[in-house]
């Protein structure tokens, strides 16, 4: 069993079904420069890139694990910790910062009892800081799941969060 008691299982101890990953890997095998698209597609299937998955990818593509893990840990788009399907992305770009996004972030952190970069205990949300999402006109911006909330206040954010409906 996983000894991370305060978090859902890290996945390293569980048997993982590599079937979906293998299907993706088969499309790319033998080609050069495919690591990033492979990682993206596999992450889309599994939600995050667990250690056994990354090891599997390295083995199958015959790329050093050090290199694959280097890429995975470098890009913020890849997740090395379990996360739920729903991310809350708080834009921390310059415009949003000026418009008070730090306060929004702090309030969300308090509401959900997590820090940015972490997942809620029930595994429902992951809170993330992102750099400019390119919507400075409607700053501050929060992306809740699939929904983009613009020109939003702290109260409105918390409302949206409490009334969030799972798809």
């Amino acid at each position: 069993m996983c000894d991370n008691n305060d978090k859902p299982c890290c996945g390293a101890h569980k048997e993982i079904d590599f079937g979906a990953a293998d299907e993706i890997l088969n499309q790319y095998r033998g080609k050069e420069g495919v690591l990033i698209p492979v990682l993206q597609k596999i992450q889309a299937e599994y939600g995050w890139l667990s250690q056994p998955l990354v090891e599997h990818i390295a083995r199958e593509l015959n790329i050093y694990l050090s290199e694959v893990y280097g890429v995975v840990s470098f890009y913020s788009q890849f997740y090395t910790e379990p996360r739920w399907r729903y991310t809350i992305q708080i834009c921390r770009g310059t415009a949003c910062h000026v418009k008070g996004s730090l306060r929004i972030l702090e309030n969300i952190e308090d509401e959900l009892d997590v820090k940015a970069g972490q997942m809620t205990k029930d595994g429902k949300f992951t809170v993330e800081e992102v750099n400019c999402v390119g919507a400075c006109g409607i700053a501050p911006v929060v992306i809740l799941g699939q929904k983009t909330l613009g020109s939003i206040t702290v109260a409105e954010t918390l409302d949206a969060l409490r009334n969030f409906e799972e798809q």
Partner: peptide, 24 residues
């Protein structure tokens, strides 16, 4: 051999073994 790599980025960048495991 490829046992080592760069991980994370910016100020947090470190060199080491992937997952602190001596793979190769």
């Amino acid at each position: 051999v490829g046992a080592l790599g760069f991980y994370e980025r910016g100020f947090s960048t470190v060199i080491g073994y992937p997952y602190n495991k001596l793979v190769n």
